[in-house]
Design a protein around this nucleic acid. Structure first.
Length: 263
DNA sequence: ATGGTCGACGTTCGA
């Protein structure tokens, strides 16, 4: 079984490329982030036409997450227990959707960006991650053999090699000790970055800013991850970042990340 | 091409 995650940066503007990518990538399950639309705007029919069941969680033109599957899609959950919201008054944001696909509990996650170190979005980001970690630890406590994939745009570069120049990122988000500690918490809980061993750095990224010719200059960030529970990690036989998909006109600023599981 | 791009509910904001 082949599972993947991709921040598409608007599914409506990316639907042609998404269709083409699905047809050539042969994935069974895809976690999508930043659909940037509501259900009534989501191109369900085109994806169903390719043989995928679809679960989408989108509240407005920001955020939005989805799971596509051609190996079954059950027990859909919008958000996780106690997921923090944002705003005044506090309102939910569509940043997490879970479903069981082919025996794997898949989560499509769009972690809050943080914006700047002194922005209120930063404590929101950390609280969001802490709450997700509490949930994830509980899932493993309930069933140590659970097959869980936490997939998505984590908006964290856990290691220095995950950005092109640490000096540039001094004082910026994505690399701060608090964010890295939040990410490490998932590893400490038993989850495994199942892609890194198959796509080692340095210079291996999943995101390149549209501006400043970042892609052409190979100035990217590794911020999209698939964290597998121990049982899932034991099934991983390969993984790859599809850097080709970042090329050309109409590309998302993120590349898809694909993980191959043994049957 | 005085070299900051995308996408969205856009003449502005979020990434």
């Amino acid at each position: 079984m082949r599972i993947a995650t991709w921040n598409v940066n608007s599914i409506r503007s990316r639907i042609d490329r998404l269709e083409a990518w699905l047809q050539r990538s042969d994935v069974d399950v895809l976690a999508i982030q930043e659909t940037k639309c509501r259900d009534d705007q989501f191109p369900f029919d085109r994806l169903k036409g390719l043989g995928y069941e679809v679960a989408h969680y989108g509240l407005n033109h920001w955020n939005g997450v989805a799971v596509l599957s051609r190996v079954g899609l059950e027990d859909v959950q919008l958000g996780f227990t106690d997921v923090p919201g944002w705003g005044d008054p506090v309102a939910p944001e569509a940043r997490a959707i879970g479903a069981v696909c082919g025996g794997v509990r898949v989560w499509s996650l769009y972690v809050p960006n943080g914006r700047t170190l002194d922005d209120p979005h930063m404590p929101y980001k950390l609280e969001w991650l802490a709450t997700l970690k509490r949930n994830a630890k509980q899932w493993l406590a309930d069933d140590p053999a659970a097959q869980v994939a936490l997939m998505g745009d984590w908006n964290i570069a856990p290691q220095d090699d995950d950005v092109w120049d640490m000096a540039y990122f001094q004082g910026r988000t994505h690399v701060s000790p608090d964010e890295r500690a939040a990410f490490q918490g998932f590893l400490d809980a038993g989850f495994v970055d199942v892609v890194r061993p198959h796509a080692p750095g340095p210079g291996v990224y999943t995101y390149w800013d549209y501006t400043q010719l970042r892609f052409a200059k190979r100035q990217g960030m590794r911020i999209d991850f698939v964290l597998g529970s121990p049982a899932l990690a034991g099934r991983v036989v390969g993984a790859a970042i599809d850097r080709e998909e970042r090329k050309g006109k109409g590309a998302s600023d993120h590349a898809p990340v694909v993980v191959e599981l043994e049957d």
